[in-house]
Write a protein that binds this DNA or RNA. Structure first.
Lengths: 339, 339
DNA sequence: CTGAAAGCGCTTACAG
DNA sequence: CTGAAAGCGCTTACAG
């Protein structure tokens, strides 16, 4: 087919030569910015086709000075909330013609954070969105150079900062869930916490506030991480040292693990123990009993974060708040005493 | 601090000027390829520091002709298997100094596939790995230009192809799981299938083969997609029209959904119905009963795919095969009749 | 509508 | 060890 077997992909000059036009003319039909006479236009298209030509992105970026890549900094791509947020960002970015590069930063040590950031900054970047869900996210956000347009996707209230945030108002949601449990008749609500970006997650803060507002002293917090196994251990610890009747769990994985822990302790959900999770991940509704949880539209959060990034170029930092809602299903009920 | 507030990020010439050296000298200290006298070296470092200089990746890529970005094509980033595979690729790539760009291609229509590919090919790419888990993956693999080093991560046997594959031998695993159920005393094994890359997934093929080998005719297949809700519907359909005692489910999400369907039909797992899933996702062990499943090390698959990509440059296509293992837990038991 | 020219920011031989 | 020069592949004013 091809008369010339070439090692290197064809470049714009090859196309120009084959089409018998100048390089800028090829560039023009590529960009569509300027009229090109019909026959030349067709010749160029033909040459592109025959050569299988693709513009070199690095050269385009260099010449234009524009960048079409945005970096997503995250500490995980497998946990449900993280994956869903990234999905939302990716989709919005793709539709806007941007490409995504994912940089996973698991550590918080300045050296490792800096190394990860440097690798990514080697790319021509239009901006960055960082998932500020945990300490690694916080570290990245702080270490990113000021000149790089950046927005954070966060769970919980936003502290004073010079960067835009799209955030889930988990504080309000946690308070609402806690109140729901209290209104059911529970004397208090226990809490298994997820890792947090600051000293305490918004979920923990909301739970704390709801109890305080009702004059109830906060039980000791049990901490877990994102893994179900850790949630299981945390729940066992909690159940062994307390006569808890209700637990607000940091997320659905933990709530599901807590349900297993309860079973293993001879407790039944919701008759002996009420459980509320966070996220409404796809499996939560399949649980037995179906999980009462706080639905988080992470994909939407990601989308909003991306929109902020694109729009706020050179403005004041802006925040956008998303309020999650409580989905009541079968894992919550009045405490055993009040039956 | 800084005497010059500049709109644009500093470039290498700014550093050279400030350090009182030539541009190539800065380039040399940056790359470390050539000796630079100690004092000049120090001056350059200082200037870089003061200016907050970062090399422009597009310019570097252009000048060097080398690429440090690899594209991952996938139809999803949220489903467990996909996310875990991407995680494995990302980690291996990062450690090798490569960056990842994620291209989500959900459609299979030639136009949409081509559009997605073109957007990515605009980047300077070292290669691509495509998750060939479904029709979209197959379409992408077929549409990628030949000159781009590409490897596929697949679930199941590899057909004759000119691209390297890292694959999970799901056929063998499915056959093993089916035999396990048969050995438990089940007369036959039903199957709820996931979407497949070809006409039938390797999981389905293995199940089919195991039954055939025992002279058992294959029950009608019920198809589902990745969503638990779809799995639930599929399971209900199956349970309503059959007296199934064992089901090999296309993945854990489906198995968990099938457990709910069974419950809703008044059946108990594993006493009335045995269930086997695929994946061993984190929640599967938390299930009640804990799920018997075929563990898939997706992260390892992703890692191997990346290694193939880096090594096979300019060689024959190579395949690497990973064999998943059956993890027996509580969702499988002899059929009710044999109790 | 179209080409010659300059430039994007870096790297790599080439000569000292 | 170091600088002047050319070049990577494209785009964008500038003149027709």
């Amino acid at each position: 087919m091809d008369e010339n077997i070439r090692r290197k992909p064809p470049v714009i000059a090859d196309v120009a030569k084959r089409a018998g036009v100048s390089v800028p003319t090829v560039s023009r039909v590529l960009s569509g910015t300027t009229r090109v006479s019909p026959e030349r236009h067709a010749r160029v298209l033909k040459a592109i086709e025959e050569l299988g030509y693709r513009p070199n992105g690095a050269a385009q970026a260099l010449a234009r000075g524009d960048q079409a890549m945005i970096a997503v900094f995250t500490s995980s791509i497998t946990w449900y909330g993280y994956a869903s947020t990234i999905h939302g960002i990716e989709k919005a970015a793709r539709e806007a013609g941007y490409l995504i590069t994912i940089a996973v930063v698991e550590a918080t040590s300045p050296a490792q954070v800096a190394a990860a950031i440097n690798q990514v900054l080697g790319q021509p970047l239009a901006g960055a969105v960082v998932l500020e869900y945990d300490p690694a996210g916080v570290a990245v956000l702080a270490a990113l150079p000021e000149w790089l347009p950046t927005v954070a996707a966060a769970a919980g209230g936003v502290k004073a900062t010079d960067r835009s945030h799209a955030y889930m108002d988990d504080e309000v949601a946690a308070a609402q869930a806690t109140r729901y449990l209290l209104d059911l008749g529970h004397k208090t609500v226990h809490h298994i916490a997820i890792p947090s970006a600051g000293s305490e997650s918004a979920r923990t803060l909301g739970w704390r506030r709801a109890l305080r507002d009702r004059g109830i002293s906060t039980p000791e917090i049990v901490v877990s991480d994102w893994a179900p196994m850790a949630g299981y251990d945390a729940a066992r610890r909690l159940l062994q040292s307390n006569d808890a009747t209700a637990i607000l769990c940091g997320n659905d994985d933990i709530a599901i693990a807590a349900a297993k822990a309860a079973r293993d302790c001879g407790l039944s959900v919701p008759d002996d123990l009420s459980l509320i999770g966070f996220d409404d991940q796809p499996l939560s509704a399949m649980w037995d009993p179906p999980l009462t949880t706080i639905r988080q539209d992470f994909a939407n959060l990601g989308r909003e974060a991306f929109k902020l990034l694109i729009s706020d170029r050179a403005g004041e930092p802006q925040n956008i708040r998303i309020v999650p809602d409580l989905v009541v299903r079968g894992s919550t009920a009045p405490p055993p005493a009040s039956l």
